[in-house]
Design a protein around this nucleic acid. Structure first.
Length: 239
DNA sequence: GCGACAG
DNA sequence: ATCTTGTCGC
């Protein structure tokens, strides 16, 4: 869908790939990742989430746009789709990004920052979902994982704001960040066009009361609601 | 060979 | 991710 302010990929590539082709593409696109701050003034922040139907291969993707200051929901879009790629650790973006890009196509506000549910450069080829989305949209992104994919770390302190570094051999690939006192930390990494300290600053700011940033929380609520509705409609159609 | 493995 | 079971808190 073409619109005045639609956010659309600046890079196009096929999604109909096998496992080894996808890995080749990741290595190629990983060269484009920028690990420095290139943010304009951050007025709008996007959050993204995907949920799956239990039986079939159906999925629902949601994009939310929050006001960066008030953290209130400004705009959202939900799309239903079919998953064409299996879940393979390290190739997560090939499963989830096609519906996410579809969901973005009907969003009128161009976000200044996107917070992703998944890793950025904390990835075997330094190209997790957040980096992939960032490079395709040429937009600053933050990778925000609930569990780690790769790396070693010491447990951070138990207070909100405590952190430790996530290391892959000698590479600092991310930060293990405690967003709430005594709550399991989250794994923050550079997606694209942002530095690690700035990424952490935003994640902490976006998670004032909960473990995860407001962006992911709100997107999560939306997809679950839509999925429930979808299953109900499917059930009603059977009668 | 064995364990680890974003969602 | 989703499912399942149990527990706590509003």
């Amino acid at each position: 869908m073409k619109g005045v302010n639609c956010i659309e990929p600046v890079i196009q590539h096929s999604w109909d790939l096998n496992e080894s082709q996808a890995i080749v593409l990741q290595k190629e696109l990983a060269l484009k990742v920028i690990k420095e701050d290139q943010l304009k003034q951050v007025n709008y922040i996007a959050g993204v989430d995907v949920a799956y139907s239990k039986n079939s291969d159906r999925l629902v993707a949601a994009v939310v746009i929050l006001d960066a200051t008030t953290q209130k929901l400004i705009e959202s879009n939900v799309v239903e789709d079919i998953s064409n790629f299996p879940y393979i650790p390290g190739l997560f973006s090939f499963r989830e990004l096609p519906p996410v890009i579809k969901a973005f196509s009907k969003i009128s506000i161009t976000p200044d920052l996107i917070v992703c549910d998944g890793q950025g450069v904390a990835h075997p080829r330094r190209f997790g979902l957040a980096s992939h989305l960032g490079v395709l949209f040429n937009t600053p992104t933050i990778g925000c994982g609930k569990t780690k994919l790769l790396g070693d770390y010491e447990d951070p302190g138990i207070k909100r704001g405590d952190y430790s570094t996530l290391l892959d051999s000698n590479d600092e690939i991310g930060i293990v960040l405690r967003t709430q006192n005594n709550v399991k930390p989250i794994y923050v990494s550079i997606g694209h066009r942002i530095s690690l300290p700035t990424a952490c600053k935003w994640v902490l700011q976006l998670a004032p009361r909960f473990r995860l940033p407001e962006t992911t929380r709100q997107a999560d609520q939306l997809v679950k609601k839509s999925l429930t509705l979808l299953e109900k409609i499917k059930k009603d159609n059977k009668r």
